Computed example of a mutant assay.
Amino acid sequence: MKKIILSIAVVLISLVSMAQKPEYYQTMGESLGEYANCKGVADFQALGNKFEMIANVEKTEWLPLYYHAHCYILMSFMEQDAAKKDSYLDVAEKSVNKLIEMAPTEAEVFVLQAFYLTGRLVVNPVERGQEYSGLVGQANGKALAIDPSNPRAKMMKIQMDMGAAPYMGLDPKSFCPQAKELLASWDNFKPKSPLYPNWGKDQVAGIVKRCE
C-alpha cells in the first residue's frame, strides 16, 4: 500500500510540475526527441548546445545540464582524435561538476560521472587505466549506494567487471547471467518523470549478444 501511495504521489508531483512549467517540459520533451535523429558528432553537439541554452534559462533544473554533458560524452566516444576527445570531455566535465553540486542525491548524476570518467579512460587506456578505473568505480558505487535498482548503474558495474575480469583471472562471460537478468528486468525500472534518463538498454542488449 505504501508503494502504491508513493507511486501516486510521484505521478501527481510530476503532473503539477508540468502544469507549472509547461514551456520547460515541452522544450525538454522536444529536445529529447531529437536524440533519435543524431547520427554524428555535429548532431550531438548541436543538441548538446540546445540543452545548454535551456540550462541557462532554467537555472534550478539539473536535467538540461545532464543532457548537455551526456551529448558531449557521446561525442567523445564517436571521435577518433584523442585531443578532440579530451576537448569534448572538458566541456562535459564542467556540467558534470555543476550537476554534483545541484543534485547530490540523484543516482543518475553519479552514473553520468562514471560515464564521463570512462570517456577519459578510453582516450588513453594504457596511461589512464589504473587511475580512472578506480574513479569510475567510486562514482558508480555512489550511484548504487543511492539507488541499488538503477539499471544504468548496474550496467556500468557489469561493464567494469567484465573489463577487469581478465586481470583477476576470471572469465568475462561469468558476468553474462547478470547482463541477461538486467536486460530482462530493464523495463521494470520506472524513471521519476518522463524527462529522466532512460538510456542504456541497447548497450545491455549488446553485451548480451556478445555473450552468445
Rank of each mutant, 00 (worst) to 15 (best):
K2G: 07
K3N: 12
A9F: 14
A19T: 12
Q26Y: 15
G29L: 07
G29K: 09
S31V: 03
G33L: 14
G33A: 14
E34V: 07
D43M: 04
G48K: 02
N49S: 14
K50F: 15
F51S: 08
M53Y: 11
K59T: 05
Y66Q: 06
Y66G: 05
H68A: 12
Y72L: 15
M75V: 12
S76D: 10
E79C: 06
K84T: 10
S87E: 13
E93K: 12
V96A: 05
N97K: 10
I100R: 00
E101L: 15
M102E: 09
A107D: 09
F110C: 03
G119I: 08
R120Q: 05
L121E: 08
P125F: 03
V126I: 08
Y132M: 02
L135P: 09
L144V: 04
P148K: 14
S149L: 12
S149M: 13
N150R: 13
N150S: 06
K154V: 06
D161N: 12
D161Q: 08
G163H: 01
P166I: 02
Y167E: 08
G169V: 10
K173C: 10
C176V: 07
A179W: 11
W186G: 00
D187W: 07
N188G: 15
K190G: 05
P191Y: 03
P194R: 03
D202M: 15
V204L: 08
A205E: 14
I207Q: 00
V208Q: 04
R210I: 13
